[in-house]
Amino acid sequence: MLTAIVIFVGLALVFGLLLGYAAVRFKVEGNPMAEQIDKILPQTQCGQCNYPGCKPYAEALAKGEADVNLCIPGGNEVMLSIAEITGLEPKALDESVAAEHTPKETAFIDEDVCIGCVLCIKACPVDAIIGATKLMHTVIQSECTGCDKCAPVCPVDCIEMRAPETTLETWQWPEPTSEPKPLASQYLDVNSTTEQRQ
């Protein structure tokens, strides 16, 4: 009896010390969960979650202050991975918003109409608009996240969101559908000439 107690107390002590040592030795700086969430967020910095950017939202999530379903550009996939990281219950996206989830668009400034007011420059969360006062502005396409923050602030309505053009380079094979292969009769258009089509 006594031996058993001694053994178990001894074991408890050993493991306790081990765990205590590990806690000190392998201490992780910062909040890994916020980092993890930040990594999966789409980084559009659009603010549709009502936080100023992706990182603040990630931090709020890590603290347990935010819902998992606020990231609209991320869609369902991001929501599910957030739920997985935080261990919270997955929650459906707001339906009206989820339906509008469209492929990535980027901002275009109609350079002839732009009056150079710099309002959009200030609104851009990733500094993707260049220009200066009274000089027309332009959007660096490769850096635009499509957050749509610049369009509402424009006083002359010269910013529009455009889906990227499909070119021969960017064209993708569609996923095969289960529909049967088309019959010859469905191809009536193949012989029309360019002029006819236009």
């Binding site: 499909t166 088309p182 469905q186 191809y187 089509r197």
Partner: peptide, 9 residues
């Protein structure tokens, strides 16, 4: 770039 309508199928 894309003036012609996409093919039906």
């Amino acid at each position: 770039m894309n003036n012609s309508p996409p093919p039906i199928i």
